[in-house]
Design a protein around this nucleic acid. Structure first.
Lengths: 223, 223
DNA sequence: AATTATCCATATCGATCGATACGAAACCTG
DNA sequence: CAGGTTTCGTATCGATCGATATGGATAATT
């Protein structure tokens, strides 16, 4: 059984499934779904193939559980930013700056698992690619939801496209993920985020918190 | 020999290497380097394995030649935009709008091969991932070069970071590539590009050409 | 026509892929 | 302790991976 609940009799597991899943998640994050082999997983998780398959069914299920774990443990900043009781501009600002930090954490693979986990796949892994696309679309929808909420409250100018800005912001975060994978530092990603925020026709009056970030409030990077 | 020059005697090739390379390029574009198998290449190129290896050495060399071909045949808009005798703002505008079109061409895989060709790879393909990163860095450097040129001509405000804006623009294009892979239409990508342009503290006076694009000149998407 | 060089088609290579069969070992229940 | 259940470790499965050996076929060269 792949049941991870309390045992109903039988030999107990000799390993911690959560630790093993964590190791698998980081490996998938670094190398993507298909390029991560069972041999690599075996070594990183410290398990034998039957242990992996007994606990996680198969590679695809393991990856899906790794996605859930990533969502829960690595990108809490997103929901946090979008649900914070602040202005829309400040919420978006926290979202992008949170991404800058999350995509460049020391000791972690660069970028976002939802982007680099399976961008281009073989036909056999199309379902995985679709799953990640769904995660990305959900992120964009969450941003759109927050913008729509701000628009309803008069936080945004009338006549602007919520979907258009959501796509721009989601695209910016995706771009930050690529730049992070190419080695961009957290400072560079923050500068990128600040520049991106300058495109928004709202929230500029909320750009303070210099004391929090230790950086200038202006949207334009200075030499 | 993998020589593609004139034969020095011997049986002539029964296929067109350029057509075969084109088929391989589109396959790599769609599925990425590692997920594209020899079987898929064989079918798409209409060749037998020995034909492929005789003409292109091995899979890695074939991919590198596909990258060169992609650079030459699919993204000429970039160099064209950056070298056009126009203002810096207009050049950047042409760059982003060109990307919107190139990343969503009907009948072509979505996005940019330099982004989706090998974002996350196995350790064995690290050299390929590095090669693509080099291409992306070169694109960013080309943008930075154009911005520096504009700065020298007084086309840009003083005191801004050329590298910072180059990273923002390269990141925006990378993000557009992801959005294109997720099915964004050319109109949506154009809107994203226009929004991104609004972050720039220069070139806004050059936003005309409505008659060319058939769209509004304003940077903000409207509902 | 003879020689030389290259390419073609068939068949298949060793390595690695994801996944499993098998029987012994370890725990819970009665 | 006996029975039932689950996981353990070892060995290995068939399929697919990228790549090639071999020998006949087709051209330019001499």
């Amino acid at each position: 059984m792949d049941n991870l609940e309390k045992s109903r009799g039988g030999r107990p597991r000799a390993f911690d499934p959560d630790r093993a899943l964590d190791a698998a998640m980081h490996l998938f994050w670094e190398h993507g779904y298909e390029a991560t082999s069972l041999t690599m997983l075996r070594e990183a998780m410290g398990l034998t193939p039957p242990q992996i398959y007994n606990a996680f069914t198969d590679k695809e299920t393991l990856f899906r559980k790794a996605l859930e774990r990533y969502h829960q443990t690595e990108i809490g900043f997103a929901l946090e930013a979008l649900s914070a009781p602040v202005s829309t501009g400040e919420a978006i600002r926290r979202l992008l700056l949170g991404a800058a930090e999350a995509y460049s954490r020391p000791g972690k693979p660069g970028g976002c698992l939802f982007v680099s986990g399976a961008l281009a796949t073989s036909p056999q892994a199309q379902a995985i690619a679709d799953e990640l696309k769904t995660y990305r679309k959900a992120s964009e929808a969450a941003i759109a939801g927050r913008l729509a909420q701000g628009k309803a409250k008069g936080d945004l100018p009338e006549g602007i496209s919520v979907e258009g800005f959501a796509k721009y912001l989601a695209g910016t975060m995706n771009g930050m993920s690529i730049q992070a994978r190419d080695g961009a530092s957290v400072e560079e990603l923050r500068a990128l985020a600040e520049t991106a925020l300058a495109a928004l026709p709202f929230g500029r009056q909320n750009q303070r918190h210099d004391s929090e970030t230790g950086h200038h409030a202006g949207p334009f990077p200075r030499s």
